[in-house]
Simulated scan of single mutants.
Amino acid sequence: GGFAGLAAVRRLRRDFEVTLVDAKEFFEFSPGMVRPYTQPKLYGKLVLEYRSVCNKMKVAWIWGAAKKIDDKEVVVQLSNTSTKSGQRVVLPYDYCIISAGCHYSSNLWYASILGRDRERSLEGRQERIEMEHKKLSELAARGAHVAVIGAGYVGVEYAAELRYYYPTLQISLVGSPRGVCPSMCPGARKYIKGHLKKHNITMLAGPKYSEANSTLFWKKVGRSPPERVFKSVGMQPHCEFLPSACLSSKGWVKVTPTLQVAQLDGDSESLFAGGKVFAVGNCADDVPGLLPLPKNSYPAEEMAAHAVRNIRRMESQRPMRSFHWAWPCSVCATSLGPKDGVLLVNQKRPGSGFVAMRGRAVVWLKEFIRWSKVDECRMGTIGTLIWRFVH
């Protein structure tokens, strides 16, 4: 599922018999998930149920988690059943696209697909958001100290959201020795640091933080331990259903330049399942011959569109084409609360690119992207027309 999975289904549904499998009951617009914890009523604008959208697309939908895949079939454990005695179904396939995504060590930003079934349902997810919002309100009422671990764009966005909606909180943003958003260009980093300083968000970049040394860490930096810690570090794949020969040392899915899943075969690599399985989006390892792609929605959908085109080429026995870096992959918009933000373009390497836009206009742009993309995922006419010309 996710951005890449839905993008693939939309392109395949008219000419193929398609089944969408996801361990969650719902799709979330994950780039906007920092805000519902401060404004829970916004969550309804960021989420849709897979069952509803699959009915509109006239494709099959299975709520379950893939457990095993070989060269002929996928074994899926249905959700709402226990791990020990859960019902499983076997899905034979002609082609398979893996878009399993990834997750942080915290499931605030990405809904859990590894936890209990309750956490995978829409109702359970809404309960989690309401619970976190209530806790934040209680912390703000007494001016508590909270910490955001990880000063990448997600951590920065969340710290800025907390400051805007809960001005009484004491907020610490803990990053690496390289400082905030180390992958961004100097101009963007300077602008973000200025915003954080202006709004009294304490930036800590020095000793490495871990739960094991947390007491010592806060003593070294001269701050009292926080009452609440939010993590935005430790991005991890979850593709254990594939043979280990198909995974990198860190668990990402190995792919060829054509986005087919590769496997280690002795001292060389070969195509897994005869080349009928593709991997797209955040679960995929670096594409050979390309700079590392950002793990966000645009490259994921671009990869999905390319995989579908290659499936059609296989069907018509035409040569497949290698994936290439599309220029929008290098665009990054980071919001700093609901009234400020920064837009980078041409960010192909860490520290590269330049700032193209600052201020409230970036927030408006992100809101337009959010609205139009969710509308497309819901099979809305306007969103579909807008994004039809992008991929």
Rank of each mutant, 00 (worst) to 15 (best):
G2I: 03
F3M: 04
A4M: 01
A7C: 14
A8R: 07
A8I: 04
V9D: 02
V9E: 02
L20T: 06
V21A: 03
F27G: 08
F29W: 10
R35N: 01
P36S: 00
Y37T: 06
P40G: 08
Y50H: 12
R51T: 11
K56V: 03
K56A: 00
A60N: 08
W63V: 02
A65K: 15
A66S: 07
D71I: 06
K72N: 12
K72W: 02
E73Q: 15
V75P: 13
L78H: 07
S79K: 05
T83F: 15
S85C: 09
Y93Q: 03
Y93W: 05
D94Y: 01
S99K: 03
G101W: 10
H103E: 10
L108D: 11
S112M: 01
G115L: 11
S121G: 07
E123N: 06
R125E: 15
L139H: 13
A140N: 13
G150C: 07
G150N: 09
G152W: 06
G155W: 05
V156W: 05
A160Q: 04
E161V: 04
R163N: 10
R163Y: 08
Y164M: 01
P167Y: 07
T168I: 02
T168Y: 07
T168W: 01
Q170I: 10
S172N: 09
L173C: 13
L173A: 12
V174T: 00
S176T: 15
C181W: 00
P182E: 13
M184Q: 14
G187P: 01
G187N: 01
I192E: 05
I192C: 10
K193P: 00
H195E: 07
L196P: 13
L196V: 11
K198R: 07
I201S: 06
M203D: 13
P207H: 10
N213L: 05
S214V: 00
P225V: 04
S232G: 10
M235T: 14
C246M: 01
W252Q: 06
V255K: 09
L259E: 11
A262C: 01
Q263S: 10
L264Y: 08
D265F: 04
D267E: 15
S268P: 00
S268M: 04
S270I: 08
S270R: 15
G274F: 12
V277T: 02
F278H: 11
A279Y: 12
V280P: 05
N282G: 04
P294E: 09
K295S: 02
N296A: 11
P299M: 12
M303F: 00
A304W: 00
A305G: 12
H306K: 12
V308I: 04
E315W: 03
E315T: 14
S316V: 10
Q317C: 09
R321D: 14
R321T: 07
W325Y: 15
A326G: 09
S330H: 11
T334A: 12
L336M: 13
K339E: 15
V342L: 07
L343G: 10
L344H: 13
G351P: 00
R358L: 06
R360M: 03
V362Y: 02
V363I: 02
W364C: 06
S372N: 01
K373L: 05
V374F: 08
G380M: 04
T381K: 13
L385Q: 14
L385A: 12
V390D: 06
